[in-house]
Amino acid sequence: MAKIIVVTSGKGGVGKTTTSAAIGTGLALRGFKTVVIDFDVGLRNLDLIMGCERRVVYDFVNVINKEANLNQALIKDKRTPGLYILPASQTRDKDALTMEGVQTVLDNLAKDFEYIICDSPAGIEQGAQMALYFADEAIVVTNPEVSSVRDSDRILGILQSKSLKAEQGGTVKEHLLLTRYNPERVAAAEMLSVADVEDILAVPLLGVIPESDAVLKASNQGAPVILDHESEAGQAYLDAVSRLLGEEVEHRFLEVQKKGFLKRLLGGKK
C-alpha cells in the first residue's frame, strides 16, 4: 500500500516545491518507486524544478477529466530511476480538481507506487485542502519567521480536522521541516531558532535545511538540490529522507560554523 505524503505550509514561497522535488528524488534514490504530484494547478512549477517542463504533454487535470490516461500523463525522471512526476495544468485553475477525480487518480497510483508525494499549493483554500485530504503523513515546510510559523500552525489545524484521516477519527502523522535556516542570523536574533519553532508548533522535527545558494542554483538548473551532494542543503535533505524512513540521524548545520583558516583565505561558502 502506497504511503501518501503531502508537502504543505500555508504560506507561499517557503520551499514546498523544492522540498517535494528533493524528498521525492531522495525516496527514489533509496529504491522506492515514487511519484510526485503537482497540486498547484495554474501555477505549475514542479516540472521546472525537476527539469522536465518540456516533456509535459498531458497533466493532472487531463487525467481527472479522463482526457488522458495516467500513463500518458506520468513523466519518468531521466536522472533518477523509479521517480515519476504528475504535472499540474498551467491553463486551468484549482477548481478543476474534484474530490472524486483526485481520489481515483490516487487510488490508481497507489497500485504501482510506494510513495506518493503531493506538492500542495500555498494557502488554505480548496487546492491546498484537496492536496492534504487523502494524506497519511504531512511534511509541514516552515521558514524561521513568525508569519510562516503561524501559517504552518493553521495548516496543522486543518490537517487534523479536515483530512480524511481526521474525519475517520485518526491522525495525520506530522513532520516539521525548517527551510532557509541561517544559523548566523539566528545567532544575531534576526531569525527564530529551531527551539523557538519547535516550541510553538510542537511537531517532531524532520530536518533543518540551511539557507544555501545551492537551492537557487538547483532550481534554475532543474535538478533537485538533493542530487547536489556537495551542498549542505542537499545533505540536509538526504538526512531528512533517512528520518522520514524511520532512521535516527543527528541534525546538522544548526550551529554557526567557524570558518577555518584555509576557508577564510579562499572565502569558501557552500
Binding site: R150, D153, R154, G157, I158, Q160, T171, I200, A202
Partner: peptide, 27 residues
C-alpha cells in the same frame, strides 16, 4: 489531548474544558 492550532475553536458547552497540549496564537 491534541494541540489547538491557529484558527481552530473549541467550545465545551455546559462543562469545563481541559486542554492537555498547547493553545496556539490565533486559536
Amino acid at each position: 489531548t491534541r494541540p489547538i492550532r491557529s484558527g481552530q475553536q473549541v467550545y465545551a458547552e455546559g462543562s469545563d474544558l481541559i486542554l492537555m497540549a498547547a493553545v496556539s496564537e490565533g486559536a
